[in-house]
């Protein structure tokens, strides 16, 4: 293992232990590691955005146009200028100019997203919910599959009923919405359980690093 890899492992181990030290109580090591993490994350993101976004997509084509290599780079001036209008926010007299890039972004985003999101998330999901009933009618589903198909429809109807506030939740509507709450709780429970699994995986990865990489590196010295 080379010298710089060893330094990297020791720094990573120190920062890992510093972050976990907050489990005992708040301390300067934790705060140092926390602030360093936030600072490095932002700095790293900005540098990567400049090198992988701004320079290849804006600066290089524009520079090529100025030097006469490729005149198409001048077209980049349009999005660059629109993008620069975001900085109008810094001047109180010119703040109104920020409306133009925001309007373009919202207009583009809505125009692109609304029909496709409706199709992918509403129509496809609705189709997926009722499609198994065609198979039930054709007699191609097993008993368990039929139970699943019915359960999904019951879950969807009951859960949507819970969020239907146009009528008072009394009588049958109340009971449908109560069943809907049960489905919601099962969904939240599943999401929470999976979240716990994810968080524990992060802990396991750091412990694996400390035991194998860090302590392993120490043992190789001796």
């Amino acid at each position: 293992m080379d010298f710089w890899s060893l330094i990297g492992i020791w720094v990573a181990a120190f920062l890992t232990l510093s972050i976990y030290s907050v489990l005992y109580r708040d301390n300067p090591f934790y705060r140092f590691a926390e602030h360093l993490f936030v600072g490095v994350s932002v700095g790293y993101g900005i540098v990567l955005s400049i090198y992988q976004g701004f320079i290849p997509l804006a600066w290089k084509p524009f520079a090529a146009a100025i030097t006469g290599e490729s005149m198409s780079g001048f077209i980049k001036l349009i999005p660059i200028c629109i993008g620069l209008l975001f900085f109008a926010r810094l001047s109180p007299r010119h703040t109104w100019l920020i409306r133009y890039p925001i309007a373009i972004l919202i207009g583009f985003g809505s125009g692109i997203a609304i029909p496709k999101v409706l199709r992918a998330n509403i129509f496809e999901q609705t189709h997926g919910t009722i499609a198994p009933f065609a198979e039930i009618a054709a007699g191609t589903l097993s008993g368990w599959d039929i139970f699943e198909a019915v359960l999904i429809v019951v879950g969807v109807i009951c859960t949507l009923t819970y969020f239907f506030f146009a009528v008072e939740h009394r009588g049958p509507v109340k009971w449908l919405s109560k069943v809907g709450i049960a489905f919601l709780m099962i969904g939240f429970g599943s999401a929470f359980g999976n979240t716990v699994m994810g968080r524990v995986a992060l802990l396991i990865q750091r412990v694996d690093f400390l035991l194998n990489d860090w302590i392993g590196a120490i043992l190789t010295i001796f």
Binding site: A120, E124, Q125, H127, G128, I152, G187, S190, A191, N194, T195, V196, M197, G198, A201
Partner: peptide
């Protein structure tokens, strides 16, 4: 996907997306 978002991915699996 990570465990945090897995629950919201299952509907897409059921529809074949």
């Amino acid at each position: 996907v990570t465990g945090v978002i897995i629950a919201q991915m299952f509907p897409y699996l059921q529809t074949g997306q």
